[in-house]
Amino acid sequence: MIEEETGLRGRAEEFLQAFKKGTEFTHDLLKENERLRFRLLEMENSLAGHAVQGDGEQNHALLNRIKELEQEKQDILNRIQKVEDENQDFANRYIEIEAENNNLANLYIASYQLHSTLDFREVLQIIMEIVINLIGAEEFSLMLLDEKTGVLSAVACEGLDREDIPPVKLGSGLIGQTLLSGESYFADDIETYNRDILSPMVCVPLKIKEHVIGVLAIYKLLVQKERFAQVDYELFTLLAGHAATAIFGARLYSDSERRLSTIQGFIDLLTK
């Protein structure tokens, strides 16, 4: 991610250099155009002054020269137009790269934070922070599957009481179906969505490869968040994979810590 960021910055620098060169080139062309216009004017004046005494051959040569200069002027104007078009293209591309850069920054930070700890509670907290701060959700819950019972239960939520979120059986309702299918669900019209605990507006499965371990269910967005942007869908995809592995890793770690502590207790008992 840092390399991509550095690459993007490099590309932005290159673009700025190209933009500066384009500007200098445009200024040179305008100066040249001005000089040629001046020369043309001089020649026209000279031609007018000598029209009477100049012979036909000389006049003909001057008229040809004028034509050449006119053509040259037209060529320069065409080139200026081309450079301006190129500048516009560069400016548009720069804006696109900046937006891409911003999105990558969000994705990089979300991913970095998710894998920054092995503490289960901290991992949940980080997922919550990402959903609030980077996606802009106001009410949501994070539900994890109990492999033994096949029931999903809320382990963390924001803007809702955990007691208000009923356990969901595998395959039951929208949440259970998302868990079963492993496919994200997005309500067709976010603006007209009415909160229903069993039918969230967004339901994202948390999965390690094809193994789904839980679901993120979103019920309400922040008042200033009117719709999802492209980066939000990328964040959901990232959460689907990285949050699952972070949760799974943290659980494994806490289990191993607990077992280690139990074994250590036995050893202490036996050796004392």
Binding site: I109, Y112, S116, E129
Partner: peptide
């Protein structure tokens, strides 16, 4: 910490 890192970035 997520927001601090994003702002700092």
């Amino acid at each position: 910490p997520t927001m601090r890192q994003l702002i700092s970035f």
